[in-house]
């Protein structure tokens, strides 16, 4: 039972952003902030935005 993911699904519904949000949480759990950043950059790339992979 993953309550956090359940609430995320509820907040977003079945949308592309919902899938992104889930993937970001999973990415964080697996790879920390770097994993999230990687997933976000891939999402942005799909939207046609090329952001430099620069870590703050």
């Amino acid at each position: 039972m993953d309550i956090l993911l359940e609430e995320v699904r509820r907040a977003f519904g079945n949308t592309a952003e919902g899938k992104l949000a889930e993937s970001l949480i999973e990415a964080y759990r697996e790879g920390g902030p770097r994993g999230v950043r990687r997933a976000l950059l891939e999402y942005l790339k799909a939207l046609g935005v090329d952001v430099e992979d620069r870590e703050d």
């Binding site: 609430e7 907040a11 952003e17 949000a21």
Partner: peptide
């Protein structure tokens, strides 16, 4: 590219707002 960047920015804002909501509920 500018349109895409602004669109993406809007989407990320939306994602953040909903994530906050999910956090409160969770």
């Amino acid at each position: 590219k500018l349109d895409n960047a602004l669109y993406a920015y809007g989407k990320l804002q939306e994602v953040k707002a909903k994530l906050e909501l999910a956090k409160i509920n969770a």
